[in-house]
Design a binder for these strands. Structure first.
Lengths: 168, 168
DNA sequence: TTTAATTAGTATCAAATGTTACTATTGTGG
DNA sequence: CCACAATAGTAACATTTGATACTAATTAAA
């Protein structure tokens, strides 16, 4: 069981304030209030809760799921487009496609207009699996967001929008 | 360059509303509005921005950094306590400790009271490096949060609190 | 006590991931 | 045209990560 931290620096002001951040440099950082850390912990938990629905039951990795979710949004799309759309590196996407082809969930054919590129799409099986996953992850999302009030959900969306714009 | 999605389901209501989530199941999920996905993308960016300050300049992995940050908060602590406090698996922590010992940033000695357990602490060098990192990551945090208004930062903190309580 | 069950930490092996470089194809400047 | 740069996708290698199982030590149970 964990004892009490030696020195917990009060960082409420830091988190809240926008002031010029020149506090003493040799202070102890309280990880539990450090935004990047909190975000990482939260993301991990949300990711675990969500990925159950495709990993456990359909043996899909997160990258594979994202590729499928991207393909479902487009008629036919190249691997590079998937990278751009889904914010993943091309090697990740390439490998995910390879596995999805093995599982016959995705078809890949050389593009007519550019013989370097390929056109990808979900197979019937791929679509079927996709359609079974969607309501489940949506329900999971709603379960999680359900812990927030309606106005908090609005705030959250706006905040994520802002941060993404800023960090893009 | 990416073409327009075939069918973008309007999911604003879903994201905002708390309603009973029985929409048609065979809809297309718009990844870009799906909370777990957005959170993952955001977390990745924040993580990259933050980790620059210890990875690039001190060759520390994220886990190593977290172990150090945890050690800095306690006089002397066991590996298991680090796991519990920092939300990491024990194998991750064990490996991070091994590397930190190689770098002479951490000392590990067998606990007096329990000869299975160990007591860990930062070395002088470890403390020195820690103290150089803290102001940098704090500044990075502030730069990121600086894109939000003061009230938004407050909202964000409250929202993370709520979600973490719920998902714990 | 002696035995069984639990715990702390690590070793080991398989799987996933990152990095670099390669092949094939297309675009571009002379 | 032709040489050269840029692009799409993959291969190959090194490194990291995850899962399992193991050793040693402690606790609980009979």
């Amino acid at each position: 069981m964990l004892v009490t931290p030696v020195t917990i620096v009060k960082r409420q002001e830091l988190f809240y304030s926008n002031s010029k951040m020149n506090k003493k440099t040799d202070e102890i950082l309280d990880l539990r209030q450090f935004f990047p850390y909190r975000l990482a912990v939260l993301e991990q938990r949300v990711g675990i809760a969500t990925s159950r629905h495709y990993r456990h039951d359909f043996d899909l990795s997160r990258v594979e799921w994202r590729v499928m979710a991207t393909l479902a949004m487009f008629d036919s799309i190249s691997a590079t487009d998937i990278c751009e759309f889904s914010h993943m590196a091309k090697m990740q996407v390439s490998r995910a496609i390879a596995r999805l082809k093995e599982k016959s969930l995705v078809i890949q054919k050389v593009s007519e207009s550019d013989h370097r590129a390929t056109q990808l799409s979900l197979t019937e099986d791929g679509q079927k699996i996709y359609r079974s996953i969607v309501p489940r992850v949506l329900q999971e999302e709603q379960a999680i967001l359900g812990y927030l009030s309606a106005s908090e959900r609005g705030q959250l969306q706006k905040i994520i929008d802002k941060l993404e714009d800023a960090l893009a």
